[in-house]
């Protein structure tokens, strides 16, 4: 029997599911190997159990926590798919701003006060902190990036199909920059998050003339003290450095110390 695969989305742009659909040829081959039983971008159906559940999006509300726990209980393998699910992504920046302040910014002060006083809107207030999937349930594999890298998705599916262990080496983006023979972003007078960020993206942003902003998250061995020192030497202020660090990774190190 073909493995049952499901895709679930939480707080996200669903761009990673689109990236999956964009695997095109490989996606058609995958359809021959697995049964996709839930996929909002492509179909709607529900199943009681899943062999593999792909989770897209960060977790915000209590209701999302319960839904996620339910999916985990029904899934043999759970994959966090994309930067939102793995490290919170840009929306986790709101973790550093009081919810009342956020509502004011988005809806204006008057509507914020209305929202605050009307019980109908109270579930919104349950949103207190943006969390990555692994903060709530155990995650078997992570497909990093904003959006995910189609080749990594295909690699993961292949491994799951043959029963091997997919390999996502914890190497810096620099490795792939050198393989692509990119001129280092620092030599272009810019600054970069590449040295402390998970590679696997083929250094796509640098290869196309931009810098790495760290969407794949900090490496376990990330020497963040040294990295901040390098950025400071290149003229970045502490506030600018904090901005860079919080852009994608606000939810990555909640409650954890800066480690080497």
């Amino acid at each position: 029997m073909k493995p049952k695969v499901a895709f679930f989305d939480f707080a996200s742009c669903e761009g990673c599911q689109l990236a999956v659909l964009n695997c095109e040829d490989a996606f058609l081959d995958i359809l021959n190997l697995v049964d996709i039983v839930e996929f909002r971008e492509a179909m709607s159906e529900t199943a009681p159990r899943f062999d593999v559940a792909f989770i897209e999006g960060s977790i915000h509300r209590e209701i999302d926590v319960q839904r996620l726990q339910g999916i985990r209980a029904r899934s043999s393998v759970l994959v966090a798919m994309g930067a939102c699910a793995c490290i919170g992504n840009v929306q986790a920046r709101s973790n550093f701003i009081a919810p009342a302040e956020n509502f004011k910014r988005v809806y204006g002060e008057a509507d914020r006060n209305l929202v605050q006083s009307d019980p109908e809107f109270w579930p919104l207030w349950a949103h207190t902190r943006v969390r990555a999937v692994k903060e709530i349930v155990s995650v078997d594999y992570e497909l990093r990036g904003c959006p995910i890298v189609p080749e990594e998705f295909v690699h993961l599916v292949k491994a799951l199909v043959v029963g091997s262990i997919p390999s996502f080496p914890a190497n810096a983006v620099c490795v792939e920059c050198k393989m692509a023979e990119n001129e280092c972003v620092f030599d272009q007078g810019e600054t970069c998050m590449g040295q402390v960020t998970y590679g696997g993206c083929k250094a796509i942003c640098v290869t196309h003339g931009y810098r790495c902003d760290g969407c794949r998250g900090f490496l376990p061995q990330a020497n963040r003290v040294a990295h901040q020192a390098v950025l400071r030497e290149k003229g970045l202020s502490d506030a600018q450095i904090e901005h860079r660090y919080r852009l994608f990774c606000s939810a990555q190190f909640v409650g954890r110390e800066n480690r080497r």
């Binding site: 620099c174 490795v175 990330a222 020192a229």
Partner: peptide
């Protein structure tokens, strides 16, 4: 090694 990122750039170039 204090400032080393273990990024491997030195090897690959």
């Amino acid at each position: 090694v204090q400032r080393c990122f273990s990024c491997g750039s030195c090897n690959l170039v």
